[in-house]
Design a protein around this nucleic acid. Structure first.
Length: 646
RNA sequence: GCUGGCGUAGCUCAGAGGUAGAGCAGCUGAUUCGUAAUCAGCAGGUCGUCGGUUCAAAUCCGACCGCCAGCUCCA
């Protein structure tokens, strides 16, 4: 028997008999490892523990802690679920059942039967039963024809369709208990590895993700090796629900969505408007420092503008229908750029004037499918903190760096420490998709990369993700649900200046084409604030909080003093309310704690007689008494510094 | 847009063929109180909308509207 060399992650090398498998390797290392091992990575590919290795290879034993281990675990869980479904609902046709970022799903076709919560409980119960039996996952390799015959007699049409794409290949099947599935693998050694299972929900999903195909039922689930991990996961799901901006936004009276106005058309309530305006003013100030010029443009524009830009009719389906006025057609503006281009084009520009940075909090309107609307994060009317900067090619990199710096400032100020960026470049194999000259693109992509390096961005490059008019940088933030939101964006544009015939006169006296940078640090105020609400769980930092201080007298003997405190706070431009309701102090405290008011000032006779206030900080409790002037000073400082905590 | 689930008072929910109920919020009164709910009374609803079945519908059936989950989409 020949031997093979196995290299481990620590670069140690050991010899094993040819045909050794992951189980034997892990057993040779330690019993504990063998018990925890879920799969084995062989030369970068994840394999079953039982699959023989026939050549020298780099091997890593995968446990739950490894992504490949989790992936395998959830993949096997999906199969276990399919087995349970087949047992309970014979005749079910199976689509695909892959692992996902958090758990797994299986797409199934049960004809007319719609899965109910009871069904889920039954399936979950059956799965738990199977884990007790500790069925092994057995891999079989068949010829294409054998596999085809098997699924043909079983009537699994979807599997047959999948097989069509793998003609002339060896087909691998996995058998667990009585259920046999078409599958690349890999799987964990046996069902006993899967300990704690929770089936989460059912939703429709098109077969192979195409609207043209039949809709199948998709069952989502998750599984863990320990109860603790399952409980933690379920807790996180609950926490995400608690932070949901749609719930908090309504409770805290930030915004209102009502069918009487229309889906995806949020109304900003007084408290939400304070947050919005505070954010806007913050950005306006920063932009003034950086030489931006504010402009204001109307909410509609002549349809021809969007024909010139090339967006219409290409994006016709995601715009509101045109409005006919006299002999012209107008569009609710889906973006601000064409308006801004007209401002630039209205007079000649010298190379000395560039860059010109036009900025506007511009509200745009896009038609989103009704099923896509979601709170503030997906709406039909939203306000972009837009700017279009017209620059010379030689100014591009410095300008991009300045924009990145601004976006970083915005994110850091708001406490988004963990954001990543995506540099979207064109696909060099598919150049005809993009406008603009080759050398401009090459240069722009190089300069974006240099700018990203210079600004120390945590970035990854996405080839083929560029807009048709130029490469871009997107800023991505993860919310508590683990969803990634694209907030800020910087886009380089060579196409629009051409289409709108934008120019400047260079030092050579000739006309030149400027480059346009589109950028928005918040992206949209709606989405940004939606994410902020969840990020802070509604507990905004003081500078953003709609209500900063509530003053509450213990009895009405202090009403007059309390009113004078409120007055002084108002003069210091602190957002304050007076609560003289005839209620016990505990009642008032509870109420304002629930409304997440940052500071509560309690004034009784002691405070009245010493011109002081007793301070209670939201979630922190009683901070003791302080002279009023000192309180005003420290609060003002907290607001001015935009402090994130306390 | 598609599939499924859900729509009862401002909010959270109970009622599952016999004619609508609780807690909180609101209003009125009493209480004047020191760091997360004082007590009492009052008021509040064509049970999402429209149609059908029935002696009788919040309850059963159908259509529509809205919300939620996911799919598809997102310049």
């Amino acid at each position: 028997m020949s031997t093979i060399k196995i290299t481990f992650p620590d670069n140690s090398v050991r010899e094993f008999e040819n045909g050794v498998n992951g189980i034997q390797i892990s057993e040779s290392i330690s019993k504990k490892l063998a018990a925890e091992a879920l799969a084995v990575e062989v030369d970068g590919e994840v394999w079953d523990m039982s699959r023989p290795i026939n050549k020298d290879a780099e091997v890593k034993i995968l446990k739950w802690q490894d992504d490949g281990g989790k992936y395998t675990y959830w993949h096997s869980s999906a199969h276990l679920m399919a087995e349970a479904i087949e047992e309970i609902f014979p005749g079910t046709k199976f689509g695909i059942g892959p692992p996902i970022e958090n758990g797994f799903y299986y797409d199934i076709d049960m004809g007319d039967h719609a899965i109910t919560a009871d069904d889920l409980a039954k399936i979950e119960g059956k799965m738990a039963e199977y884990t007790q039996h500790d069925f092994p996952y057995i891999r079989k390799e068949l010829s294409w024809q054998e596999a085809y015959d098997y699924f043909k007699q079983k009537g699994d049409d979807y599997k047959l369709e999948l097989l069509e794409e793998h003609k002339n290949e060896k087909i691998s099947l996995y058998k667990v208990g009585k259920f046999t599935d078409l599958c690349y693998g890999p799987h964990v050694p046996s069902t006993g590895r899967i300990k704690f299972i929770k089936l989460l929900n059912v939703a429709g999903a098109y077969w192979r993700g195409s609207e043209k195909n039949k809709m199948l039922q998709r069952i989502y689930g998750i599984s863990f090796p320990s109860k603790k991990e399952l409980d933690e996961y379920l807790y996180r799901v609950e926490e995400a629900k608690r932070r949901d901006h749609r719930k908090l936004g309504t409770e805290l009276e930030i915004f209102l969505l009502t069918p009487k106005v229309g889906g995806g058309l949020p109304l900003w309530l007084p408290k939400g408007t304070i947050i919005r305006e505070t954010l806007e003013n913050f950005l306006r100030q920063e932009q003034k420092k950086r030489g931006y010029l504010a402009v204001v443009t109307p909410h509609i524009g002549n349809l021809n503008l969007y024909k010139t830009s090339g967006h219409y009719p290409y994006y016709k389906d995601s715009q509101f229908s045109p409005i006919k006025v006299e002999n012209e057609e107008y569009l609710l503006k889906p973006m601000n750029c064409p308006h801004h281009f007209q401002i630039y084009a209205a007079k000649p520009h010298s190379y000395r004037d560039l860059p010109i940075r036009l900025s506007e909090f511009g509200t745009v309107y896009r038609y989103e499918q009704s099923g896509e609307l979601n709170g503030l994060t997906r709406v039909r009317s939203f306000t972009v903190d837009d700017s279009h900067m017209f620059v010379r090619q030689d100014q591009l990199k410095a300008e991009v760096c300045d924009v990145i710096d601004l976006i970083q400032l915005v994110f850091n100020t708001l406490g988004f420490k963990d954001f990543t960026t995506r540099l979207s470049f064109r696909d060099p194999l598919n150049k005809e998709k993009y406008g603009g000259a080759d050398e401009l693109w090459d240069r722009a992509e190089r300069e974006i990369l240099e700018a990203a390096e210079e600004m120390k961005l945590n970035y990854k490059v996405a080839i083929g993700e560029a807009a048709f008019y130029g490469p871009k940088i997107d800023f991505l933030v993860k919310d508590v649900l683990g969803r990634t939101w694209q907030l800020g964006t910087v886009q380089i544009d060579y196409v629009m200046p051409e289409r709108f015939n934008l120019e400047y006169v260079g030092s050579d006296g000739q006309k030149h084409r400027p480059v346009v940078i589109h950028r928005a640090p918040f992206g949209s105020l709606e989405r940004f604030i939606g994410v902020l609400i969840e990020h802070y769980a509604g507990e905004f930092p003081l500078w953003l909080s709609p209500l900063q201080v509530v003053v509450m007298p213990i009895t009405d003997a202090q009403n007059e003093y309390a009113a004078s405190v409120v007055n002084k706070l108002k003069q210091a431009e602190i957002r304050v309310e007076l609560d003289t309701r005839n209620e016990k102090i505990n009642y008032k405290i509870r109420e304002h704690e629930l409304k997440k008011v940052p500071y509560m000032l309690i004034v009784g006779d002691k405070e009245k007689n010493s011109n002081s206030v007793s301070i209670r900080r939201h979630k922190k409790g009683d901070l003791g008494s302080q002279p009023l002037n000192e309180f005003i000073k420290s609060v003002t400082e907290e607001i001015e510094n935009k402090k994130i905590t306390s």
